[in-house]
Design a protein around this nucleic acid. Structure first.
Length: 268
DNA sequence: TATCTTGTTAATCG
DNA sequence: ACGATTAACAAGAT
């Protein structure tokens, strides 16, 4: 559940469904996703009472009275609240609660479940450098950054230390709505283009956020998000006509990632 | 079999 | 120092 819309809706749901639960036992099926030895992780969180869950970028932060649980679902994953006899086949970690329910954690590639003690919150390297959530970045902030940051617009948007929460799925439509080629130098943007980009970020993310995230991820109860392919303008629609000018959408390589663009609407 | 992928870090080059 | 690029890492689908 990689990007901000999924993470933010999941955080809200976790607070709603998990706050108040007490961890009784933790099953660790994949120790590699932890930041500390499994035994220490289990000992640290057993007996913890869960508080609210918040998010920053692609990270979920669940507060407990014994420390903080940090989750990053990597390139896709599931958090499922189930009865212990209904656990999914694929799982890396299971939190058993004293009320008889269980939270199963899985990711299909690269994910993290980390723990920090209350006095070490600031020492967590992987989240310490995250920038503000994408929806909290003001037009003024973006304009200021665009004056000094010498990089390509796509690289900038994906840089979690600058803006947190945008990934390589939502970025296609964000750049399309802003009418910008991914490889455009940020520093060359006009004030109009910057305000267009700011609006496109908000539009691209809130549309999905309001629908509970993307269809390819499910919530704690196993329900898929309401943001479907029909809501996507050009992303993953190679060869299909651009909704604005009907030019076929193309897929191009942009560094290590791919980008879907309308070559007519987003010239370099 | 080869290649793709919603993420992040580290190493390397210019 | 900084930006760009590549590889690596715990998988699964096509």
């Amino acid at each position: 559940m990689p990007e901000l819309p999924e993470i933010a809706s999941r955080a809200a749901q976790m607070t709603e469904l998990l706050a108040g639960k007490v961890i009784q036992e933790i099953t660790v099926l994949q120790p590699k996703c932890l930041n500390i030895p499994a035994a220490e992780f289990q000992a640290s969180l057993c007996g913890a009472k869960l508080g609210k869950t918040t998010c920053r970028g692609k990270w979920l932060f669940t507060e407990t009275d014994l420390g903080r649980l940090l989750l990053n679902l990597g390139m896709g994953g599931e958090l499922l609240l189930v009865k212990p006899d209904r656990l999914p086949e694929k799982r890396r970690l299971v939190f058993h609660f004293t009320d008889g329910e269980a939270l199963s954690v899985n990711f299909w590639w690269f994910g993290y479940a980390h723990f920090t003690r209350p006095d070490e919150l600031h020492r967590h390297e992987m989240t310490a450098r995250l920038g503000p959530n994408a929806l909290d970045v003001s037009l003024k902030d973006l304009a200021a950054a665009a004056k000094t940051q010498r990089t390509r617009v796509k690289s900038y948007l994906l840089d979690q230390s600058k803006i947190a929460g945008i990934g390589n799925a939502y970025i296609h439509d964000i750049l399309f709505q802003a009418r910008l080629h991914p490889l455009t130098q940020l520093i060359t943007l006009t004030p109009d283009q910057i305000s267009g980009l700011h609006a496109a970020i908000r539009k691209g993310l809130t549309t999905s956020l309001e629908k509970g995230g993307a269809f390819y991820e499910v919530d704690l109860l196993g329900r898929p998000g309401g943001f479907t392919m029909d809501d996507i303008l050009i992303g993953y629609k190679e060869g299909k006509p651009c909704p604005v000018c009907s030019t076929p959408i193309t897929k191009i390589k942009t560094g290590a990632t791919s980008s879907y663009i309308c070559p007519h609407c987003q010239p370099l």
